[in-house]
Amino acid sequence: MKELLDLFLLFAKIGATTFGGGYAMIPVIEREIVDRRNWATVEELMDYYAIGQCTPGIIAINTSTFIGEKRRGIVGGIVATIGFVTPALIVITVIAAVLQNFAHYAAVQNAFAGIRVCVCILILNAIGRLWKKSVVDKKTLLIFLAVFALSVFTNTSPVILVLASAAAGIVLQQFSVSGKKDGKERSGDGK
């Protein structure tokens, strides 16, 4: 019970600091889940993000469900996700009820222009750390470049990019494994 409460509070904290969409949560999630608690590895986080991109629902939500499930099974997944949406639920309800012109206040606009700068740097720092774990050789560099270029310059759906990358991973690894096997057999024949 205590652990479920911890899960709820932790994801509420993450939800309260995720401004401007899913990717903004990456630095905070990394700090809380990987560095502080060792609940998941950086590699697992990357898997969650990618799977979250090609399944229904919001990436931040999907990542919360994954981590909660890993800790405490199905109930953990549900509790973590509800924790994540609770701050937004409260804030929007208050805005809908009393602060209709919230986004038009100068202080609010200025504060969030400042926060966006911070989110930029936080994400760039996170990318530096995630990079080392995911782009590990020439094959993954190729996949990275293809996905990056396609998502910047075209309107290709992330669903297609993610599915194609998984397929590319399988095909490229299959080639290199059978290539190595051939090499070994050939050198074996030589003896």
């Binding site: 990456i26 991109q53 966006r116 996905v147 992330p158 990358s165 998984a166």
Partner: peptide
């Protein structure tokens, strides 16, 4: 093995998508 290989490709895609999203945040604010 196939799941491992699929995830290997998936992680590279993940960072590609994150970089593209980061670029759009940089474009809005910097």
């Amino acid at each position: 093995r196939l799941v491992q290989w699929g995830l290997y490709g998936l992680r590279a895609a993940s960072i590609g998508l994150i970089c593209a999203a980061a670029l759009s945040v940089v474009q809005i604010s910097l």
